[in-house]
Amino acid sequence: MKVFKHFVQSPLYWIAVVAVGFGLEGVALFYQHVLNEPPCVLCIQARVWTLVGIIVAGLGLTVRKFFYARILAHLALIGALIGLLNRSWIALLVERGQYDGQCGMDPGFPTWLPLDSWFPNVFEVWTMCGYTPNLIAGLSMGEGLVYGVSVLIVIAVAALVVDILNRK
């Protein structure tokens, strides 16, 4: 526990969050551009939530010496992870045929932030939702994201609690 406390209150925590975020984005782009797996709207929205997490972690790194700002960064990170879990969960439900909602081609970006126009190789929807490709050990990308993000949420909540209890 002492090691985790030290880790959470060091810049390494926020750097690790950024690294995990870039890793997730990298895997998504590898599947899209190397393995030719076209992204659906849920995939794109998951990428946006991952980008939000990266940005929040960058801010957390810069404000880590200020307790209340750091707590806000923890909360914002947890919010981004919950958004990512939501998109991942819906992708899993779609994959299993258990989702009744619509899954179209519009990523839903506001007119003032058209990420799909600015960065089409990263944020443009290429296909309708239906399945997610296999990752490893028989897990689909949807399953892997749900399990992985759930673990990340537990870590982020633990980091918040440790940070609050061990105010520096």
Rank of each mutant, 00 (worst) to 15 (best):
T111Q: 10
E95D: 14
R167C: 06
L42H: 05
W49Q: 15
D100M: 13
A28D: 07
L145Y: 13
P120Y: 09
V52L: 15
I136D: 00
V157M: 08
Y68H: 13
Q9D: 15
K168P: 09
V63D: 12
A156G: 06
V63R: 10
N36M: 08
L81C: 02
Q45N: 15
G101W: 02
V157N: 02
V18D: 00
A158K: 06
I15G: 03
E25M: 10
V17T: 11
G108T: 09
L72Q: 10
G21L: 06
V52Y: 06
I55V: 15
P110F: 12
L72F: 14
P133Y: 10
Q9H: 15
L92D: 05
L152W: 05
A57C: 11
W89V: 09
D116Q: 10
M105I: 12
L77Y: 03
A73M: 11
N36E: 07
Q102R: 14
R47C: 01
G142F: 09
V20P: 02
I78G: 04
T132D: 11
A69K: 06
S117D: 03
S150G: 15
L12G: 02
L92P: 01
L29Q: 11
I155F: 15
A69L: 15
L72E: 05
F119I: 11
F4K: 13
W89N: 11
E95I: 08
G104Q: 03
V17H: 03
A137L: 12
R47S: 10
L85H: 10
Q45L: 11
G83P: 01
A137I: 04
C43E: 02
R167H: 10
W112R: 08
E143W: 15
S140I: 08
V154R: 04
N121T: 08
F119D: 03
C129S: 04
I153M: 07
C129G: 00
G144L: 08
V154S: 09
V63W: 13
F30N: 01
F109T: 12
V3P: 00
F4W: 14
I136W: 01
R167L: 09
H6S: 15
E37H: 08
P39Q: 09
W14G: 02
T111K: 13
L139C: 00
A16F: 14
H74P: 02
L115K: 04
I54K: 03
G142N: 13
V125L: 04
A159H: 08
P107R: 08
W126S: 13
V3L: 13
A156L: 02
V151H: 08
Q102H: 12
H6D: 15
P11G: 13
V18W: 04
P39R: 04
L152D: 00
S10K: 07
G101S: 08
L165F: 13
V41K: 09
D100K: 14
I82N: 00
A57H: 07
A159V: 03
A158G: 00
R64A: 07
G60K: 14
Q9S: 15
P39Y: 04
E25L: 11
S117E: 06
V161G: 00
C129P: 01
M1K: 13
N121W: 11
L77C: 01
V8G: 07
V146C: 10
A80M: 06
P120G: 07
F109Q: 11
S10F: 06
Y131F: 10
M128H: 10
L135K: 01
L29F: 06
A19H: 07
F7I: 07
K65C: 01
Y147E: 03
I55K: 04
G23K: 12
P120L: 12
G21F: 03
F123R: 02
I78D: 03
R70W: 02
